[in-house]
């Protein structure tokens, strides 16, 4: 076997991972599925004489995707607690990249696909049940009856699916890095570190803006600003903005940068892991 990247070894590692952790994954899936199913059940029982609430479903979707995804990612390397398991993992003849690819596939593809499929099917099932059994109160006028028809969550255009997915990829990558960095209580430690970092960044951003510009010229508040006013505070004669292209670049570059650095750091965490 050569030392270059081998697709065959990735498949072997993947199979090994599923064989060894399959039972755990199945339990996690049943638990998650059960919780969503239960909450939907409660919603539907409470809505037979009411409208089927879409806000609650969106919230459930968002919590499920983030909480579940980050918990799953943050526990991926929890076996580092066991020295023999770590030794086995490190000495298994495969390259670091191949080993990393397994957690990448599982946290970035498998989880999200399984989650989306199960959520959409529960949502579809529950909406169908609701539409079948709903009893619309007699006093509802004909024009308003369509409010009593449940629409599938993914047919509604109010779900910010693109943004949620981007956020999912970034938060799970951070959680994954956290699981490689902390051996015990990886999730809690990563969350604390993440919150502290965000607070520190906001603070530093404010401080550096303060150094450059007086607070009075920042029209959109003192913590974040993308524009500066010229002239008198109360009667500005103009507003200076960043060029439009910069926004799209930043909006694209920042998540990409975060994502790439998380996975690069994860790679080196495994490569340099000593026990």
């Amino acid at each position: 076997m050569n030392n270059e990247f081998s697709f065959r070894r990735v498949l072997l590692l993947l199979r090994k991972n599923f064989k060894e952790n399959g039972r755990r994954y199945l339990l996690m899936f049943i638990a998650g599925f059960g919780i969503i199913f239960l909450i939907y059940g409660l919603l539907i029982v409470g809505s037979f004489h009411n409208m089927f609430p879409s806000g609650d479903r969106k919230m459930l979707f968002t919590i499920g995707i983030f909480l579940g995804g980050t918990l799953f990612s943050a526990s991926f390397y929890s076996f580092f607690k066991s020295q023999p398991k770590t030794i086995q993992f490190l000495l298994l003849p495969a390259t670091t990249g191949e080993k990393l690819l397994i957690s990448f596939i599982l946290t970035q593809f498998v989880y999200i696909i399984v989650f989306l499929i199960s959520f959409i099917s529960i949502d579809w099932l529950m909406c169908t049940i609701y539409n079948e059994f709903v009893s619309i109160p007699k006093w509802i006028v004909e024009q308003e009856k369509h409010y009593y028809k449940a629409t599938y969550l993914f047919n509604s255009n109010t779900v910010l699916i693109k943004e949620i997915l981007i956020m999912y990829f970034i938060t799970t990558s951070i959680a994954h890095l956290g699981s490689l960095s902390f051996i015990n209580n990886a999730y809690v430690k990563t969350v604390i570190l993440f919150v502290l970092t965000v607070v520190a960044l906001i603070f530093l951003n404010n401080k550096s803006l303060d150094l450059m510009f007086p607070e009075t010229v920042m029209p959109r508040g003192q913590y974040f600003t993308a524009s500066l006013s010229i002239g008198d505070k109360h009667q500005p004669i103009g507003i200076v903005k960043l060029p439009n292209g910069w926004f799209t670049t930043i909006a694209w570059f920042l998540p990409m940068f975060l994502y790439m650095s998380c996975w690069t750091m994860s790679y080196f965490k495994i490569k340099e892991k000593q026990i």
């Binding site: 030392n3 023999p84 030794i87 000495l91 390259t95």
Partner: peptide, 28 residues
């Protein structure tokens, strides 16, 4: 490197095994 690691087998004092049939364990 994989070519190094498949020539080395380390059996630690404490061991930990997955929940697998012994033959599957070998096969993996």
């Amino acid at each position: 490197a994989p070519s190094f690691m498949h020539e080395v087998f380390f059996i630690p004092e404490e061991i930990d095994t997955p929940s697998l049939h012994v033959l599957d364990f070998g096969a993996e």
